[in-house]
Computed example of a mutant assay.
Amino acid sequence: MAIYFYTSGSDYGCFSNFSSHGFELDGEYWPTAEHYFQAQKFPATADCDQIRQAKMPKDAAKMGRDRSRPLRKDWEEVKDDIMGKAVLRKFETHAEIREILLATGDEEIVENSPSDYYWGCGKDGSGKNMLGQILMKVREVLRKRTSE
């Protein structure tokens, strides 16, 4: 049986990039994984810093999707690794959500986004579910660490 999540206020909401589990990464504090992910579209720029300081993750997402900002040229090549880095750090930082992730065992984890066919499963379930894939990889990394 798969575990579905979407909004930060629902069951398994801590799996959402909008969950308020901040962390330090690359020498800065990030309020959410969404803040980090969106800001990395514009590394070492004023845009990056503005996004990091956004009040809410939805604001960071909107700013990161604003194509009037100059998107880094290699974004499509690096976005999965950047997401993985953020998700791993989030779960390394917060023991209580790390336990929730590890307690999912070998269940498939699915971001049940009706509109996102890349990070989520999309409305009809045909999406790539890349965020779910990353969460399952992070779970494996953390599981190996706890068994060492």
Rank of each mutant, 00 (worst) to 15 (best):
K90M: 04
H94W: 06
W75Y: 11
V78C: 09
C14L: 05
P70F: 15
F23A: 00
E108L: 13
K123S: 12
K85A: 07
S19W: 00
A61S: 11
E92Y: 07
Y117T: 08
E99D: 12
Y6N: 03
K62L: 12
L88I: 04
M83A: 09
R65T: 10
Y36A: 03
A44G: 11
G105H: 04
E76S: 15
F37K: 01
G125T: 13
D124G: 10
T146H: 14
Y4F: 14
S126V: 14
T146G: 15
S8V: 02
K73T: 13
M83Y: 04
Y118L: 08
M56L: 13
P57N: 06
S20P: 07
L71I: 15
R143K: 14
N17R: 02
A44N: 14
V78A: 05
A60P: 00
L101H: 01
D66K: 09
D47V: 12
K58D: 11
T104C: 08
Y6S: 01
S115G: 13
P43E: 09
P43M: 09
M136V: 10
Y118V: 10
L71V: 11
V78F: 05
R69G: 08
S147C: 14
K85W: 06
R143C: 13
C48I: 05
R52W: 07
P57E: 03
Y29D: 09
H21I: 00
K55R: 12
L102P: 00
Y29V: 14
G27H: 07
F42E: 02
E76L: 11
A95H: 11
E92H: 11
M63P: 02
L71N: 07
K128P: 07
D59K: 03
I82W: 04
K85M: 14
R145D: 11
D106T: 13
A86P: 06
K144W: 08
E111A: 02
K79T: 10
F5V: 00
I51C: 04
E108M: 10
C121T: 11
R72V: 07
R69N: 13
G9P: 03
I51L: 06
F18V: 02
S68P: 11
S115N: 15
R145K: 15
A33Y: 01
K137E: 14
T32W: 01
D74L: 13
E96W: 04
K55W: 09
I3W: 00
P114C: 07
L88F: 09
D106R: 10
N112E: 04
G122S: 08
S8F: 05
R145Q: 14
A46M: 15
G9K: 08
S115Y: 10
M130H: 13
K41E: 03
R69D: 09
L102H: 03
P57Q: 05
F42Q: 02
M136N: 05
L25I: 05
M83C: 08
S20Y: 10
L142K: 07
T93M: 07
R145M: 15
L135K: 00
M1G: 10
F5E: 01
L142I: 08
K41A: 06
L71A: 07
E76I: 10
V138F: 02
W75C: 10
K90R: 07
S126L: 13
A44F: 14
M136T: 12
M83H: 04
K41D: 06
G127H: 01
R143P: 08
K137Y: 14
Y36L: 05
L101K: 02
E28C: 08
Y117F: 10
E76C: 12
Q50M: 12
E28Q: 13
R98L: 03
